[in-house]
Amino acid sequence: MGRLEAMSLLVAVAEHGSLSAAGRALQVPLATLSRKLSDLEARLGTRLLLRTTRKLTLTDAGVAYVAAARRILEQVEEAEREAAGEFTAPKGELVLTAPLMFGRLHVLPVVADFLAAFPDIDIRLLLSDRNVDLIDDHVDMAVRIGPLPDSRMVATQVGRMRWVACASPAFVERHGQPQRPEDLQRLPCAAVASVLAVPSWRFREPGSGAALDVAVRPRLSVTTPEAAARAAVLGVGVTRLLHYQAVDAVARGELQIVLEAFEPEAVPVHLVHPSRGQMALKMRRFLDFAAPRLRQALG
């Protein structure tokens, strides 16, 4: 077990880029971590890490050893899961993640029905608008809204989601209905906080499909889509949200969609999971259970 532990520590150091960051993530004292890695190097008779006061890099031997260690650790994890019965019966804990509001509206009802149907499976549902790293954070499956840049993931598309611009009826009556996206530059807006000093909202020409990027200057910047929707309901300005973030307020008549003809192409919604050989039955059961229900909800 000591050798596997040392492999795990080395992989963590390589992934986090420093001993201190790996130690914090693993909750291992820095002195213990350094000693165990030194013991590993002594056992192998070669240097795996080059440490300076400013950075840490892998030697050529270290790069090869880390790649092999990852493969070995994945095989051990899979063997343990198989021995525990995860590949012969749907049981154990399933860790899921989804965007905060989407998870509350669409994923949580599916999870509740799934738990009733599969009493031997427990679920830990992480709701966050931050895209967690499925491998580093030990998450089994995630809902992702938007393009998928990570080729390590296996994806099942469950729908598409519109981007909508919306405002309160009173705001539209007071300021007039915007006719083109450029009209937003003269209107007050409520936006979800962006790293850009002047956020840009993307629209599309109805005829040609050409992209239109409109820089808006928000009267109010907030940190969550729910707050942006609420601000728009209160008449602060126009906001731009994914459709699910505004749909309840639109249904109640508190918001109305504007510039609908200029909406950009809808973005895909996927269930994704890491590609790690055979899928545990608890994951297969959830995928088969959740995908059609989410497709129906998003349809």
Rank of each mutant, 00 (worst) to 15 (best):
L4A: 12
E173V: 09
D120N: 13
A12P: 06
L100W: 11
T88N: 08
R217D: 05
I135Q: 14
P181K: 00
P169E: 01
A31Y: 11
Q27K: 14
Q245W: 00
V269G: 04
H138S: 06
Q185L: 11
R124C: 11
A117N: 10
R180F: 11
L73K: 07
A31S: 15
A290P: 02
S18L: 10
A68I: 00
V66S: 00
T223C: 02
D248A: 15
I123W: 07
V238P: 13
V216Q: 04
L50Q: 13
S208M: 10
V95E: 00
L126E: 14
V222A: 02
V236E: 09
A117S: 14
R71Q: 15
L287V: 07
R162D: 15
A12Y: 07
V95H: 01
E254C: 06
A117W: 08
L125E: 06
P169C: 01
L241Q: 03
P169A: 00
V272G: 04
R51W: 03
V236L: 09
L56I: 11
Y65C: 10
R47P: 03
T32F: 12
A14M: 07
E265G: 14
R51S: 03
R276Q: 13
M153C: 06
S151V: 13
L196P: 04
S208E: 10
P225D: 08
A167M: 01
G92S: 06
G85M: 09
L115R: 05
R24Y: 13
Q27D: 12
Q185S: 09
P178V: 02
R285G: 05
R47W: 01
V158R: 00
E80C: 13
S34H: 13
T32E: 14
F203E: 03
R186C: 00
F203S: 07
V272A: 12
S38F: 08
V95N: 02
